[in-house]
Simulated assay, not measured.
Amino acid sequence: MLKVALITPAGRGSRAGNRATATRWARLLRELGCSVRLAAPDEDFRQPHLANPPPDLVIALHAWRSHAAIRASRQVFPECPLVVVLTGTDVYRFQHSHPMTFLDSLEYATALVGLHAAIADDIPPRFRSRLHTVLQSALPLPPGAPGPGRRYFEILVAGHLREEKDSLRAALAVRDLPSDSRLRVVQMGRAYSVEWAHAAREEMACNSRYRWYGDLPHWRVRQWMARARLMVISSRMEGGANVVSEACVAGLPVIASDIPGNRGLLGDDYPGYFPVADTEALRRCLLRVERDPAFVAALREQVLARAPSFRPEAERDALARVMAACGLNCQARIAQVRMT
């Protein structure tokens, strides 16, 4: 049985995207016959539970935040293959603000993983031969999930409140709409600072079309996916948001900011993009969605066409291909899983 050390900067109990990815990957790697141990970037790799026996593979989520662990794993296990997973803040922030740390992590890596299909264009060319794409998966909504409400045209925003997400853009876009509009924005996610929480509460106080429900468990988010008519993803940067995968599998149309991380999941021909931080453009998109059923149908057709790419078995097979690139063969186990 292959032993995998999976490093994530998001601790136990966190609802951050890195923790969700690590938890899901641990399950998929176990399906491939691996023994998986989750570790924090500051753990001592000489501890018995990590070093005896040594891992056959180390996977580190986040090149910048896990840099110390990436270096330590190379020192303690110099022969062990190392996979570094590139996040949105890695590629679109820390690559520019902390280039030495970011590039050092990439130099150590046996293989690199990007979570959307366009990330190769955004890293130095010399690393592209090591890059593999693993699209994050999602499960379909449970049978009998409630459908959209009739009173309001509810728009879902699911993601923690922080600068990278441009979190209040949808709320700003539904201010001062025509009185006959039924558009309402429902947002959920933890505020990353007191300032973001205050901003969300202030917006609720002055904007009757906006409600923020805070950090809800995942099952509640999925309930809202079933109820909403549309999802808005307004991020300034994304490494490949899992919420896009979930929307596609749920058949929930998406209006998304025009950034590589969204295009790398939805495709260049997707008709539902708006310019980053452009409130007026987003407002026009939302009013069109409310008034143009044919446009909504086209968006839904596109996300459903993308849904097979986000199945759990597709993500598991992509992880197996990354392992094969590192010299670790899981093909027999994949064949066994597919037969069961």
Rank of each mutant, 00 (worst) to 15 (best):
Y273A: 07
H96E: 07
V58F: 04
W212H: 06
A324K: 10
Q47R: 15
S73I: 02
G11I: 02
A256G: 09
S235M: 10
G147I: 11
V243L: 02
H116S: 02
Y210A: 07
S257F: 05
Q75D: 14
G88Q: 03
P99D: 05
M237W: 11
G149W: 09
A20V: 12
R128D: 14
L2W: 08
V4N: 01
V84T: 04
E79M: 13
A307Y: 04
L86A: 01
Q336L: 12
L106F: 03
C206T: 15
H218N: 14
G189C: 11
R201I: 13
A22Q: 00
W64E: 09
R306G: 12
E246Y: 00
E79L: 11
D180L: 10
L61E: 14
W64Q: 06
A170H: 03
A320E: 01
M204Q: 05
A297S: 13
L32K: 01
D104I: 03
C285R: 13
E246M: 01
A72E: 05
L106V: 06
A158I: 12
A307T: 11
A250Y: 04
R175W: 03
V276T: 11
T89Y: 08
P312G: 05
L131A: 04
P48Y: 06
D104V: 04
R182K: 13
L172Q: 06
I255E: 07
V186H: 10
R211E: 13
P48K: 03
M231Y: 04
R306P: 11
T340I: 14
L299G: 07
R46I: 11
D104T: 09
R222M: 13
I233C: 13
V194A: 15
D121N: 12
R182L: 15
A294V: 14
S309H: 13
A117N: 11
G240M: 08
L216H: 06
G149S: 10
L252M: 08
E301N: 14
A305P: 08
D122T: 11
R283Y: 10
L328M: 08
V36Q: 00
Y92D: 07
F153P: 01
L252A: 04
L82K: 00
D56Q: 10
A109N: 11
S137E: 13
R209S: 02
A228I: 10
L61H: 01
T279G: 11
L50V: 01
T133M: 09
D268W: 14
P146L: 07
E238Y: 03
F153L: 10
A298H: 11
